[in-house]
Computed example of a mutant assay.
Amino acid sequence: MPSFNRRNFLTLTASAAVAASLGLISSSAFAAKPDIFTGLVKGVAVAGYDPVAYFTQGKPVKGSTEHSLSHEGAEWRFSSADNKTMFEANPARYAPQYGGYCAYAVSQGYTAKGEPDVWKVVDDKLYLNFSRGVQRRWEKDIPGHIVQGDGNWPTVLNN
């Protein structure tokens, strides 16, 4: 039977620490992306823009922390109390499709950030894209890309 001394103890302890940290790295590396994209402003959906304003004002409008709420693990900001109330009554109506990730990217089977100033409302649904160039590609076949995106969502979050 091998002897147990201080050197063996330190080696065992170091090995256990390495294994534990590798386990943590592995589990976080394979964790799914959040359902709502909040990468532009940490923890905030649509980079702090009011999702209702795309429908009511036809343009991106910056929201306010004064009119905000928590929904699906993200903070949503609104430009007015009325818009906040409208969103609370029907979040699925106003929230961007694919959690605010780029609609074109989701249609292609991956995710990318969705920019609040690169948007389009199609069939009463809000879609964001990564850039104007990407949006031009998406616009070449919007119905087809929406079908592909709907088929990929939300499993694309695990890619």
Results as ranks from 00 to 15, higher is better:
A32F: 08
A81P: 04
P154I: 07
F9W: 09
K62N: 04
A112G: 02
D35W: 02
W119C: 05
L40R: 13
D50Y: 05
N152E: 05
G109C: 06
G151P: 02
K59L: 08
S3F: 01
G73I: 03
T13Y: 00
I36A: 03
F130C: 08
R136K: 15
L157K: 06
F87M: 10
V44G: 04
Q135T: 06
G133E: 13
N159S: 06
G133R: 07
H145P: 03
Q57T: 02
P91L: 08
A81C: 06
G109E: 07
T56E: 11
P60L: 13
K59I: 11
S70L: 11
A47E: 12
Q108P: 01
F78K: 04
S70P: 00
A14K: 06
V46L: 12
A74P: 10
T65K: 13
S79E: 06
V61M: 08
Y110N: 13
G114H: 10
R93S: 14
A103P: 01
K33D: 12
L40Q: 14
T111E: 00
P34V: 03
Q57W: 00
R132A: 15
A31E: 10
M86R: 15
F55P: 03
Q108N: 12
Y98F: 15
A47T: 02
A29V: 03
F4T: 09
S70E: 14
V134I: 15
A16T: 14
S28W: 13
S131Q: 09
Y127K: 02
Y110C: 04
R132F: 11
W138D: 01
D35K: 12
Y104Q: 13
F30Y: 06
Q135D: 15
L128P: 03
L10V: 12
A112D: 05
K62C: 00
G114Y: 07
Y101T: 11
I146W: 08
H67Q: 10
E139R: 07
F30M: 07
Y94K: 03
W153D: 06
S26M: 10
A112M: 08
E72V: 09
F4D: 04
H71Q: 08
A32N: 13
W153E: 06
P91C: 11
D82S: 13
P34R: 09
W76H: 07
S80I: 10
Q57A: 14
K42T: 14
N83C: 13
P60H: 12
T155H: 11
G48A: 06
E139P: 02
V41P: 01
E66F: 03
P96S: 05
S3W: 00
K125F: 02
S131M: 07
A32C: 11
F78L: 08
N159F: 01
